[in-house]
């Protein structure tokens, strides 16, 4: 008997799976947009100051700045429910913490390794946490936060608390194996998680095109049936709009979703990166054409926010940042006895 011919497997898969709606750009009120502007400006000025303190030798080790990517953290986190949703990210974490309303003083003091730092000086730039704000770090191993974030989502589902986990990672981490191990389980168990790929185009010095066979990273969940959306990560309102669509999907119990945020970091990978892998012109062109803060500033001006008002905001933020820097420089280092505390929770 003749066998039925094998299905042609090279044909593209046609799916009629449900997909999320195309996100709409968020329509912000003047107050909301002003708030976004303030938060993004705070991150920008904070990071500039951190870079300066690094140069002066107050901050040691690795220090990864978020300059250029501000719209992502601010836009996405503004849509979360701070009471129940959780956030986790990698080592480029200052911006996410500031966007969560964590006091700049304790962040800066952690960067300078002081007892008043959010991790009592024992964590540093890459290892900061605020369980109170449901911010779970701050993880130094590229991609680890994806599996850990999937665990946070597992806990939300297990506890039936209605929370959603948001796990940020970069284009570099998106090539780590554990990301796909996590995707598989998250979709299998319909875990409430938003995977946010902050595609800033460079994994340290290697561009996405040089490292990723599928460089459209929002498609990376396809073989796990996780839908993905590509978002303009330089537009805070697009970010917020995408977050709302993603949250609707996840909160409806449809499982995980991927947001690829197309963004750009202006500074090197870390403070010690001379960034020779891209041209000065490339960076300048992004700054000129699509700076997320300038974009909002223009929209605020359209909304009749005066230059004087904007200047006042700028002055206020500089004051907050300078105070945090002064605090971080002057507050004492941890007591020597702190060396041995917190290794274990219990005594045995």
């Amino acid at each position: 008997m003749a066998k039925a011919p094998a299905r042609k497997t090279t044909e593209p898969a046609k799916t009629n799976r449900e997909r999320p709606e195309e996100p709409k750009r968020f329509e912000a009120s003047k107050e909301q947009l002003l708030e976004f502007y303030k938060q993004m400006l705070l991150i920008r000025r904070f990071e500039e100051k951190a870079g300066q303190l690094y140069g002066l030798g107050f901050i040691g080790g690795f220090c990864h700045l978020y300059i250029g990517q501000e719209a992502v953290a601010v836009g996405l986190q503004s849509a979360l429910d701070g009471e129940k949703d959780s956030v986790i990210t990698g080592y480029r974490d200052h911006g996410h913490m500031l966007a969560y309303g964590i006091d700049p003083k304790v962040i800066m003091a952690e960067l300078t390794g002081r007892a008043a730092g959010i991790s009592r000086g024992k964590g540093g730039s890459m290892h900061m946490f605020s369980t109170e704000k449901k911010f779970y770090g701050g993880h130094g191993i590229v991609g680890a936060q994806v599996a850990l974030g999937t665990g946070l989502a597992f806990a939300h589902k297990y506890n039936e608390d209605g929370g959603v986990a948001m796990a940020y990672f970069g284009d570099g981490a998106s090539n780590q194996g554990q990301v796909y191990e996590s995707f598989n389980m998250a979709e299998l168990w319909k875990l409430p998680i938003i995977y946010v790929i902050e595609n800033n185009q460079y994994a340290m010095g290697t561009s996405v095109n040089r490292s990723s066979s599928e460089d459209q990273l929002y498609r990376r969940g396809e073989s796990f049936r996780i839908p993905g959306i590509q978002v303009d990560g330089m537009d805070v309102l697009a970010c917020r709009g995408a977050a709302e669509e993603a949250l609707a999907w996840v909160r409806a119990g449809k499982g995980p979703i991927i947001l690829e945020m197309k963004t750009y970091r202006y500074r090197g990978h870390s403070m010690s990166d001379p960034a020779k892998y891209r041209s000065r012109e490339e960076v300048q062109s992004v700054r000129d054409k699509s700076d997320p803060i300038e974009q909002v500033k223009r929209e605020l001006e359209d909304m009749k926010v005066t230059e004087a008002e904007l200047k006042a905001i700028e002055a206020e933020i500089r004051k907050v940042v300078n105070e945090s820097a002064d605090f971080a420089e002057q507050t004492p280092e941890p007591d020597a006895s702190e060396l041995y505390t917190d290794v274990l929770v219990e005594s045995y």
């Binding site: 779970y136 850990l148 999937t150 665990g151 946070l152 597992f154 986990a165 554990q178 191990e181 598989n184």
Partner: peptide, 21 residues
């Protein structure tokens, strides 16, 4: 039951522990 995915479920477990389980 997990898939055969040690790195994944060890990380998922650690995250769940951080999340209070």
């Amino acid at each position: 039951d997990t898939p055969i995915t040690e790195y994944g479920f060890a990380g998922l477990g650690a995250g769940a522990a951080m999340g209070g389980l």
